[in-house]
């Protein structure tokens, strides 16, 4: 099973996992890494290494970070550059996390790049709009 690490500024990652579990039940192989004000890049790298050491991983580690270019992302890059089975996707949101948690339960095949692709698709598909004007346009599809 691949490992998921959600690395964010502050406790966003911890709360995001709790919210995700409200919807899909307990997660198994997901850890959070938080950046607390005052911590530096080395602290975060250490936390990532520690998380990986305590996870059940077949080698593949997917980092989901909140912000491209932010410290949690920059620290993850330092690990990812040295391991081809690691990958990062930024802009983590709830639809992305839910999708990857469910992929995690079933998928044994996809390589890390394929997993990254799935995460991006789910994150993007979760962004939708709704406005009253949409109703009139919608073609009725009745049974």
């Amino acid at each position: 099973m691949f490992a998921i690490i959600v690395g964010t500024h502050g406790k966003f990652s911890e709360e995001l996992i709790k919210t995700c579990e409200m919807i899909c039940g307990a997660t198994k192989n997901v850890k959070t890494v938080t950046l607390i004000p005052g911590e530096g890049p080395d602290d975060i790298v250490g936390k990532y290494k520690d998380a990986i050491a305590h996870m059940d991983t077949d080698g593949r580690v997917l980092f989901l970070n909140d912000l491209f270019g932010g410290s949690p992302y920059n620290a993850a890059c330092r690990l990812v550059i040295e391991n081809e089975q690691y990958g990062i996707v930024t802009g983590v949101n709830l639809p992305m996390l839910i999708e990857m948690v469910s992929v995690q339960m079933t998928d044994e095949e996809t390589d890390i790049k394929g997993l990254m692709e799935k995460a991006i698709k789910a994150g993007q598909a979760g962004i939708q709009t709704f406005h009253a004007s949409a109703i009139a346009e919608e073609a009725e599809d009745d049974l």
Binding site: M22, I23, C24, G25, P95, I98, E99, S102
Partner: peptide, 10 residues
């Protein structure tokens, strides 16, 4: 809702 749209539908 969330559980139905994401988990059960899949």
């Amino acid at each position: 809702h969330g559980q139905v749209a994401t988990v059960w539908s899949k």
